[in-house]
Design a protein around this nucleic acid. Sequence first.
DNA 1: CAGGATCTACTTG
DNA 2: CAAGTAGATCCTG
Length: 194
Amino acid sequence: MRVRQATSNPGIILAELTVSTEAGLFRVRYSVAGLSEVEFPKEENDAQLPAAATPSVAEPVKSWHEKTARALHDILAGREAKDFPPFDLSIGTEFQKRVWHVLRKIEMGQTRSYAEVAEMIGNPKAVRAVGGACGANPIPVLIPCHRVLAARHKLGGFSGGLNWKRILLEREGVLFSSDRLSETPEFNWRADDR
DNA sequence: CAGGATCTACTTG
DNA sequence: CAAGTAGATCCTG
């Protein structure tokens, strides 16, 4: 099996929009199949573009984007996101898609270890490969790869920068072993820290 | 074939 | 307890 997807051209982007949050400006992309990519705010993007509210986009994307924005805000605020846009995960390999699918089952506030995820997909020894699949997750936050920790509740890694993983987990009230504190500079988004 | 967002089991300060 | 080391394992490009 494992037929190489010759069709379904996943690379074609219909629209690239942004979602403005207290944590910065997220950049998201849509294909014909749905949300295909979420990018964490970068310092450069923070110098917000014209991005005046909701740009004019055709209807499929428009409602998808509303859901994306809402879900993003909800999760960042520590609230359960209920409504998601369709996801286009066609760029992934079968293995990665299996992992991403399982990640979606980890509810807010919960965590799993890379080893546990490996077991969930029925490939208990592919622990390290699971880490790779998490890192390849094209839709972070909405597909909660940040809820996967290393053994003994250590933080583990994160492609988008460990600080984001910390922030997201803290927002969800998850406790983790202070792995390594270093790694990142000043982050000042303090969404009303109570 | 080399390299990772790992893990377990030691061994050392 | 924190921090290395070694070997095992498996998916990817």
